[in-house]
Structures are given as structure tokens and as C-alpha cells.
Design a protein around this nucleic acid. Structure first.
Length: 1037
RNA sequence: GGGCGUUUAGCUCAGUUGGUUAGAGCAUCUCGUUUACACCGAGAGGGUCGGGGGUUCGAGUCCCUCAAUGCCCACCA
């Protein structure tokens, strides 16, 4: 610190966040500042953290999410609420297991089956411990004021108890059921993944045409039907060929639709549509008779022969077959295609699964058994070719579904799964939002929530994974009716406390029964008893969102009726990102309602997303995630938080270009698509190499790590410094502080102005925070602190503090102002405000205006500022003070335009009316010190100097004159005046036009017209005066 | 295909219920270390508010339309 040796103060001129932050966190924790306990004397305010996945470290997206939560929690805590922020992390089933399995493969070349279930799960726990610690550490360094002693994990005992209870209750209500359903099968992870975990990728593929022979064709009937597919091997599982039940009507409908489209289509799209239309018309000629014939054959139960398998399969009539596409016929593979599955359900077709869980073909496929999908595809095509049943092969782009977790192609797969019936549960969650017991901000997100729930699609909750809450179901083999009865009788005899075991019997179409037992609690004895009856536990685990859905009440102790649950639940607000509104928010609402009868939170705030410089969302997998710790190390935690809050506006995502910082030469290197996932970066500036977050090899890890930062935090860092130094100035001037009691009525204008601004800003910030307008709160504070408190009040205070008559009063007010500012800024910038608060507490332990009160030790626990109505009562204060600002600005502008050196005092005359004279007279010393001026004359009698630079503040009726005889640069002055005249004339023209417009004068409100007239008058006067100045100046040149 | 956003200064973004000359930060230019701060101070330049049309006395703001761009959902034998 260059100036730290100065003996004015023992406070350095930079806030040393690196050492202060850790000390402050420790002090808060030691004093229990973060703790929230059941306290009937206060109203509770609760937020549960969206538990970060333990898959990896947090990035700036989490940084924003948690900053916004902390700002709200800290504000409410200061407002006197018993504020609880519940922390924790999510086990993130598939994602975490996939990460650990991938490492296992990469580093040890082993699969999970090599390890076995218990060993793999143990490894994942280790991983979890490592990343949970890292995540919690990141949150702590960001200053998050969570009640850390309550930290939960979605897979811990308490959450497990909630999951078991919920599953048991839903099972008992028959809201959880077992069904054979087509699921998205990830053949790599060997698990079903939900629709939400599937993404489509366009790849080059083929479209194969096959011909199936009609069995016993009659005269006039086609001998073959043609079908086409992108996945030939699935034909092994075909159970029908479909044709439209009314091909003629379907073609007509398609034609009508195209004609309508043609009518409204823009010129350039028309040829393409016309082409389709022509194709449609030719189909009527060539194909319709055949399709009608096939339809009739379908109606009379005719079959075609499935080649290779030599299995007769029926022709069926179903509208899924579109006569306007392909041959008009479509093969039906119910077990491996979602649409075909629907057809099979409608037509009562058998479903043949041809795959094993690892993606190889099973025994249903005869000679193809054991082959991979790719191999089977080749062989099927070759075999059909040799049979002469292969037709055309087209090249085509295919949208192929991929698993988001393993990045491998998805195979639709028929499997036994557990489902949650969504009907009534979804409805309850929809009602909660429509009747506003849950309010979503911004409101536009309501629609997505309601639409998604409105589909009421049942929720498949089982996952074929090892990491997660194992489904608490034990099932029997398929039994006869009598055996099942005998078994249930035995189950009924198991002695245990009521409500901890239940069972259901499921009977299939063939009369076989299967018994399912559900246990409500983890209980080794009970499990042994159940297993002794030959029942086997379902190996699957629950979808990770099942436990996340319980988070707001499970973390507070449900299903136990704890005092915490009673007091802190329902929670107040949920702050999260838009991509999990359906997956998480909706499910929390319905589970909360189902389990507790109450909504889990009354408000939901959806914040923007952080995008990188290319406009892509930050994510671990893309490699563009920025570790908040990097930003904290470089700029400090307060700058991180303030920067994020400043950027978090309502409508716009946050674009944040990021750079690598070379650890050797500190040169910034832009992060690009190319370099963002490299383990090692070469610095072209200094020639050194450094490692990144992707470094894994020993060589790379040995390098120094390069931080990833963004210049967009500089503004915030500078602001922290500005505040720090304003405080430093204040503290330096409080060494002899003895507070005096302030009488508001006797205060000079500048003090009344400051108090009025403080009250206004308090109102703005409170209101903005209440409505989640964080950027507005941050901007309001920034502008006030920098432009008004620092640039004006502190500057004014300098001369007043040196005046013995004014010193004590000024000290009292500036201490009060700093105190208020620290409270207002604390939720956004907790560290620097706490540090200053500590210093202020030493210099001015007791402070206030009328009455002095001893400050509490932590600003974190200080009361939120309240607004004294007297500070807002006089609406004129701001206007009056702006006169001072205008005059000050005018003198400074003239000085600058004339290149008058700052150290040179200039003589000034201010021509104005009596009222303004009265206003400005007491502020004359301030004007003189802040503009380095000497005010020679002030009032109606003030006149211009002989060599003058005038500036007319027309709307105020003020003319500011500066004597330039010692400084004049005629050329520069002429240039300035002429530019000014140009601006004035432009405005006069526009005003005159406006006022010459008859309809404006007659229709616009009187007030508006009057203002326009007045300002035209002012402008005319100003023109006159400037013209005169120019003439005078010309004479001199 | 459906839904929701976005387009304002070189860059990143504000802009309340339509109403004086559209704002901020960064960048640029000029001057400057006057006892808080060069992570600073004083000042300046820079915008036909994506294009077109409409409503209105008056449009960055409301309506229609076109274009670009992003996200979500659905679908594609």
C-alpha cells in the first residue's frame, strides 16, 4: 500500500478483502449471526437453497443464484425477521453416478459391474464428500449467510425418511403404480432416463425401404406392401403394418391444409409448397386405390409375412399411418418406438422387446441374438437384400435422441417402471398458482408451469441406477391366485407397529399375480421378515427429483412434526433459474401440498441466466463455467456480489465475456469455443503455459493454474474501493467525534438535502428488494453513494469540517449518513460494510441525529434503516439543491472549456433573482471551495465581466459569469459559444414547430403546453444572450 | 410447428403509467495528483432506439408486419 505509511490514519487506502473476509466470516459464525431458531417473538422468513448438484464445483450461475438469495435473507434479517437460509446439496442421481463411472472407466478402465453396487456407491460417497466440501466452501467465501449447522443432503437420513414416508403414502393411495412403459433407454448407463434428460442431435443416416409379402394375395390385391425405416433392425420386433383407415379423407385433409398454407405463404416459399401439392395430387392417382384396398384387407384381418423372422403380422387400420408420406404404410414396432407403442395400445397388438439392457439383441431375434444394434442393422439390410425385399436406400439427416448424461444414442425400450400418477397432484399444483397461493415472478413464467402440469403426464420415478434412494418395494415372483393369497396372509401376520408396512397384489391378463410390499421406514428386522417370505427388493432407485421435490419440508424434519417445521414452513421465497421450473418447482408444489397440505413457498423468483461471451449458458459440461472463487480472489467477494446484482435485470440474461488470466504475466486471454475446454493454455504474451480447471494429467497439474475472470467486475471492485475511501475520509474526520443533537429545522440546505436523499434511497432500495429488482437496488445505491454522497456531500463536508462552528454538526450527520449507507449496502456487500462498521464503531460508537444510540457490534445484525417522514416532507429540497448543483456545474464547465488550471481560482458573478440569491448565499463558501472560484457578486445586480465566459441556466433564470481576463482563449470560447448557439437554435425550431401545431395546443394537457411555452421563452432569451456574447467575442479577435 | 424473450452509444446494459434535449459502466478525447480514493477528480465527443407500417397532438415506450437472435416445449415411419 503506497499510502499506508501516512500517519493520518491507520486504515490502508485499499480494502484488503483477502484477509478481512475470512476474519469476518469467523466473527459472524462465532457470534451466531447466521443462526435461526424458533422464536415466537419474531416472524419467520425462510428460504431453502436450490441444492447444488454434487457433480462438480459451482460456477457463476450458482454465484448469481446464491447472491440473490443472500441479499434477500440479509435484508429480511435486518428487518427483524427470524431469517433462516437452509443450505444443502443434491445427490443428483444420474449425473453424479455418470461422472464417477466415467472417471472409473478413464482412470482404471473398469465398469461399475467390475466394482459391484456397494463399492461403487462407496466411491460416489467419497466423490460427494469432496465436492460437497468444495461447494459449501465456495458458498461461504461468497458470504452466504446460511445456517450451516442445518446443512442437509438429499440422500441423508432425514431426507431418506421423508422419501420413504412419501413413497409409502403415495403407494397406499395408489398414486404410485407399476407399469410397462416405453422408456428412453440409455444403453451405456443401462438406465431409463426421463424425457427431460434427452437431447436431439442431427446425424447423417439412411432411410431404407423394405417390401413385406402379403400372405395369400387375392386377385387384384397387391402382392407386397412397402414400408420404410431409419432403424432396420427394429423390424425384428414388428408386430403389424398399419395403413390409414380412411386414406381418401386423409389425403383431402392434407391437400386442404396445403392450399391454405399456399394462400398465405410468402412468394419465396410457394414453389416448395406447390411441389408438395403436386405430389399429393399424383398420389391420389397412383396410390389411393392400393391404400383403399390395403385398408379393406386390414379390416378383414389379413396378414403380411414379416421376412427374416417368418412371422405373420396383421395389417391394421390406424390413423398414425399417413397416406401423404412414403408408401402410406408404416411398420409397427411397439416396444421400440413411442408412436408405434400408441398404435399397439389402440389396436391391441403384442409388444416384442428385442433388446437386452446393454443394447444387444435378445432371444426374440433368433439368429441375430447377441449382436449389437449396429451389427444387426447391417445384417438385416444384407439379408433382406439377398431375399430381394430391399428397395431404395435414401440418404437423410436424422434427428437422433441422445442421453444427456452419457451422450450416447437413446433406444426406446419397453420396461417395468414405477410411476407417480399426476392427475390430482398436478391439478393441486396448478390450482396453487392460479389462485396465487404461489406467485411466480416474473409472471410470464406462469404459463410454462401451467402448460406443463396441464398435460398431467405420469411421472416415471424409477431409475436403473445404484446412486440414489432405493425404491422401498419388495416384490414376489408371478404367483397363482391362491399362492398370492397365502403370501398376503403371511405378510399380514408380520408384527410391527401400525402403518409401517403395506402391500398390493397385481394381476396380469393371464391371471398371474405379483405381490408388492412397501415399507415406510428403514427397519432391518422388518426387511429380514419380508425377505424371508421370498420377496425381493426392487434394485432400482428413485428419480433424483423425487427427493428434491420434498426439500422444503424434508429439511425441516417432516414427516416428524418438529417445531422447526411448524415455525419455518411454509417457506417464504424460492429463488431459482428458469430451466427447472417444471422439473423442480412444480414438483415441490405438488409434493408439498400432498405431504403437508400447504404450499412449500408463497413466492418464486426466476432470475436471469449467466451467459458467456458467445451467448451460451454457463455449464460444467461446456467448459465455460467460471469459478466464483477466481473472481473473488481477483476482485473480492463484495465485487462479485455487487457485480452480479448490478447485472441481474428482469428481462435480460447476463452476457459475460470471460478471460483467462495468465498467472505468469497477468495478461488476459479471451476465452473462446476452442480454448475453453483445454487442460493447458499457452500464453502468447510471455510464452508461459498454465493449467485450467480441465487439467487432469500430472504434467498439466504441475503447472500454475490460470484463473478465469471477467472485466465486468471492475466497476463493482471500483465501487467497493470508493465506499472504502469515503469511509476512510469520514473516519479520519471523526477522531475528535462528540455527537451533537440535531435539530432538523435548523439544518442548512445541504444537510436537509442529504437526509432527504437518504430517506428516498432507503425507500427505493427497500421497494426494489421486495420486488426482486436487484439491479435497481444496486444501481440506486451506486448512484447515490458515488455521485451524491462522495462527489457532493463529502466534498462539501471538507470545508464545513474545517469550520469550527460547523464541525460537530457535520460530523454527526456524516457519521449518520455513513451508518445508514452501510446498512443499505450490507446485504449486497457484506464484507466491506462489516469491516467499515467495525471501524465506525470505534470512532463513533454512539451515533444518530436527535438521539444517539450505541451501535450493535455487527452491521449484519443492525436494523434496516427506517424512513423519517420529516426527511421526505419538503419536496422542494431536491429542487432547491439542484440549483446549487447547476451553478456549480456551470462554473466547472466554463473552467474546463477554457482550460483553466484547477489550482487557479476564478472570479465569478452570478446573476439571479432574490429567491435564488437567498438560497445560494449561505452556500457561497461551498461553491467557492468546490469550483475553486471567488464569488464576487451574487444577485440581481450582478453583471458580466469585461472579458467574460457566460453560461445561462435559462430555466432557472440564472446567468453565471466567469472573469476570464487572465485566462481567455478567444478561439476556444468562440467555438464553444457557437456550438451552444447551434444547440439552442435546434431546440427553438423544434419547440416552435410543436407550438405552431394547432392540434397539439388544443389537445395536449394544458400543463404540457404551458411547460413548452415557458421553455421556448427561456430558449429565446438564451439565444439572445449567447448571440450577444458571440458578437462581443468576435470584436476581440 | 407452438410458446416465451431479446434487438437502444464502439462494447455490456438501464429506460416506471406514452410527455422537456434518450441514460449508466467500460472504451475514446482534453485537463488534472486541490490532505478519502489514479480501483481517483473535472469536463467533452459519441445514438434517425433492428427495418417498414399504424394509433396518437405527441411513440424507445402501444398495435400490426418483416428480419435477426436466444431459450423452452412438441414433432419428425
Amino acid at each position: 500500500m503506497s499510502n499506508s505509511e501516512s500517519n493520518e490514519s491507520d486504515i490502508p487506502n485499499r480494502f484488503d478483502h483477502a484477509t478481512a473476509a475470512a476474519r469476518i466470516v469467523q466473527a459472524w459464525e462465532a457470534a451466531g449471526c447466521n443462526r435461526a431458531t424458533v422464536n415466537p417473538d419474531r416472524k419467520p422468513f425462510t428460504i431453502v437453497i436450490p441444492p447444488p448438484n454434487v457433480t462438480g464445483a459451482l460456477h457463476l450461475g450458482h454465484g448469481l443464484n446464491n447472491t440473490l438469495q443472500d441479499i434477500l435473507v440479509r435484508t429480511r434479517r435486518m428487518q427483524g425477521f427470524e431469517a433462516l437460509w437452509m443450505p444443502g446439496t443434491d445427490h443428483a442421481g444420474i449425473a453424479t453416478q455418470a461422472v464417477v463411472e466415467r472417471r472409473l472407466r478413464e482412470q482404471e478402465n473398469k465398469t461399475r459391474h467390475d466394482l459391484g453396487r456397494d463399492a461403487l456407491v462407496a466411491r460416489i460417497w467419497k466423490w460427494k464428500d469432496q465436492y460437497e466440501a468444495r461447494i459449501l466452501g465456495q458458498l461461504k467465501r461468497m458470504g452466504c449467510s446460511c445456517d450451516w449447522e442445518r446443512t442437509r443432503f438429499t440422500l441423508d437420513d432425514r431426507c431418506a425418511a421423508a422419501v420413504r414416508a412419501t413413497f409409502y403414502d403415495l403407494f397406499s393411495q395408489r398414486l404410485i403404480y407399476r407399469g410397462k412403459r416405453l422408456v428412453n433407454w440409455d444403453t451405456f448407463l443401462q438406465t431409463a432416463v426421463s424425457d427431460d434428460e434427452v437431447f436431439n442431435e442431427t446425424t447423417q443416416g439412411h432411410f431404407w425401404h423394405f417390401r413385406y409379402k402379403v400372405i395369400n394375395p387375392q386377385r387384384g390385391e397387391p402382392l407386397e406392401v412397402e414400408i420404410a425405416t431409419t432403424r432396420p433392425e427394429t423390424m425384428l420386433g414388428d408386430t403389424a403394418v398399419a395403413v390409414h383407415p380412411d386414406p381418401e379423407a386423409a389425403l383431402e385433409a392434407a391437400e386442404k391444409e396445403l392450399l391454405e398454407k399456399l394462400a398465405v405463404a410468402p412468394e419465396k416459399d410457394r414453389p416448395a409448397i406447390q411441389l408438395q401439392l403436386d405430389d399429393l395430387l399424383s398420389r391420389r392417382e397412383t396410390m389411393l386405390p392400393t391404400l383403399i384396398k390395403l385398408r379393406d384387407m386390414a379390416m378383414s384381418g389379413r396378414h403380411v409375412m414379416l421376412p427374416l423372422m417368418n412371422r405373420p403380422i396383421p395389417l391394421v387400420a390406424d390413423s398414425w399411418a399417413k397416406p401423404e408420406l412414403g408408401s402410406g404404410c408404416v411398420k409397427i414396432t411397439p416396444a421400440h418406438d413411442p408412436n408405434d407403442y400408441e398404435v399397439a395400445q389402440r389396436c391391441g397388438l403384442p409388444m416384442i422387446n428385442i433388446l437386452l439392457t446393454d443394447g444387444t439383441l435378445n432371444s426374440e431375434t433368433g439368429p441375430y441374438q447377441g449382436m449389437t444394434i449396429a451389427a444387426a442393422r447391417q445384417k438385416v439390410v444384407a439379408d433382406l437384400d439377398s431375399l430381394g425385399q430391399l428397395g431404395e436406400i435414401e440418404d437423410r439427416e436424422i434427428e437422433l435422441p441422445h442421453s444427456d448424461r452419457s451422450k450416447t444414442p437413446i433406444e426406446p425400450f419397453l420396461a417395468d417402471q414405477w410411476f407417480v400418477k399426476m392427475d390430482s397432484l398436478a391439478q393441486s399444483a396448478m390450482d396453487a398458482v392460479t389462485n396465487e397461493s404461489v406467485k411466480i415472478f416474473p409472471v410470464r413464467y406462469r404459463k410454462g408451469y401451467l402448460d406443463w402440469l396441464g398435460e398431467k403426464r405420469d411421472w416415471p420415478v424409477s431409475r436403473q441406477l445404484w446412486w440414489g434412494h432405493q425404491i422401498p418395494i419388495w416384490s414376489s415372483l408371478k404367483l397363482s391366485d391362491t399362492d398370492a393369497k397365502a403370501l398376503t396372509a403371511k405378510i399380514a401376520k408380520i408384527t410391527t407397529e401400525a402403518g409401517s408396512i403395506t402391500h398390493q397384489v397385481e394381476e396380469d391378463a393371464n391371471g398371474n399375480c405379483q405381490v408388492f410390499v412397501c415399507l415406510r421406514r428403514e427397519d432391518a428386522n422388518l426387511e429380514t421378515a419380508v425377505e424371508a417370505l421370498g420377496l425381493i427388493r426392487d434394485p432400482d432407485v428413485l428419480d433424483t427429483w423425487f427427493s428434491s421435490a420434498l426439500w422444503p419440508h424434508s429439511t425441516l424434519g417432516w414427516p416428524e412434526k418438529t417445531a422447526e417445521l411448524e415455525y419455518f414452513y411454509p417457506t417464504s421465497t424460492l429463488i431459482t433459474s428458469r430451466d427447472i421450473i417444471t422439473l423442480w418447482v412444480a414438483r415441490m408444489v405438488l409434493m408439498g401440498l400432498n405431504n403437508t397440505g400447504k404450499v412449500p413457498f408463497s413466492e418464486v423468483f426466476i432470475h436471469p441466466k449467466i451467459l458467456d461471451g458467445l451467448g451460451e449458458t454457463m455449464s460444467k459440461s461446456k467448459g465455460n463455467g467460471v469459478d466464483p472463487i477466481d473472481v473473488i480472489d481477483k476482485f473480492g467477494p463484495d465485487a462479485l456480489r455487487f457485480g452480479l446484482a448490478w447485472l441481474a435485470t428482469e428481462t435480460q440474461d447476463v452476457r459475460m465475456p470471460v478471460q483467462y488470466e495468465c498467472p505468469h504475466c497477468e495478461k488476459l486471454i479471451d476465452q473462446t469455443k476452442k480454448n475453453r475446454s483445454l487442460p493447458r493454455i499457452h500464453c502468447n504474451h510471455c510464452g508461459g503455459d498454465f493449467s485450467t480447471q480441465w487439467a487432469e494429467s500430472a504434467d498439466d497439474l504441475a503447472l500454475q493454474r490460470g484463473a478465469v475472470v471477467s472485466e465486468r467486475f471492475e466497476t463493482a471492485r471500483n465501487f467497493v474501493n470508493k465506499l472504502w475511501n469515503a469511509a476512510r475520509f469520514t473516519l479520519m474526520n471523526l477522531t475528535d467525534f462528540k455527537p451533537v443533537s440535531i435539530d432538523r429545522d435548523c439544518l442548512p440546505l445541504e444537510d436537509r438535502w442529504l437526509l432527504s436523499r437518504l430517506a428516498t434511497v432507503t425507500g427505493e432500495v427497500t421497494d426494489a428488494t421486495n420486488h426482486y429488482r436487484y439491479a435497481e437496488a444496486a444501481r440506486s445505491l451506486y448512484d447515490f453513494a458515488w455521485d451524491e454522497f462522495c462527489s457532493l456531500y463529502v466534498e462539501m463536508a471538507k470545508s464545513r469540517l474545517s469550520d469550527p462552528l460547523q464541525r460537530a454538526q457535520t460530523q454527526t450527520i456524516i457519521a449518520y449518513a455513513l451508518d445508514t449507507l452501510l446498512r443499505l449496502l450490507h446485504p449486497i456487500m457484506p464484507f466491506v460494510t462489516e469491516e467499515i462498521w467495525g471501524h465506525l464503531g470505534k470512532a463513533a460508537p454512539s451515533r444518530g441525529l436527535e438521539k444517539q444510540v450505541t451501535a450493535v457490534p455487527f452491521v449484519m445484525r443492525a436494523a434496516w434503516p427506517t424512513i423519517d417522514p420529516r426527511d421526505l416532507a419538503d419536496g422542494n429540497i431536491q429542487r432547491q439543491f439542484s440549483v446549487f448543483r447547476e451553478v456549480l456545474g456551470a462554473i466547472r464547465q466554463i473552467r474546463s472549456s477554457q482550460n483553466v488550471a484547477p489550482r487557479e481560482a476564478v472570479p465569478v458573478a452570478i446573476h439571479c433573482d432574490r429567491a435564488i440569491e437567498d438560497l445560494l448565499t449561505p452556500m457561497r463558501p461551498l461553491l467557492e471551495s468546490m469550483a475553486n472560484a471567488e464569488v464576487l457578486n451574487l444577485g440581481p445586480t450582478a453583471t458580466a465581466f469585461e472579458i467574460d465566459a457566460p453560461l445561462s441556466l435559462a430555466t432557472l433564470g440564472i446567468e453565471v459569469h466567469v472573469d476570464l481576463s487572465r485566462f481567455i482563449d478567444v478561439g476556444a470560447e468562440l467555438e464553444r459559444l457557437e456550438r451552444l448557439l447551434g444547440q439552442i437554435v435546434k431546440q427553438i425550431v423544434s419547440k416552435e414547430q410543436k407550438l405552431a401545431n394547432e392540434s397539439f395546443v388544443s389537445r395536449a394537457p394544458e400543463q404540457v403546453v404551458a411547460t413548452e411555452r415557458q421553455s421556448l421563452q427561456d430558449l429565446l432569451r438564451q439565444r439572445e444572450s449567447v448571440t450577444g456574447d458571440i458578437e462581443r467575442m468576435r470584436k476581440r479577435s
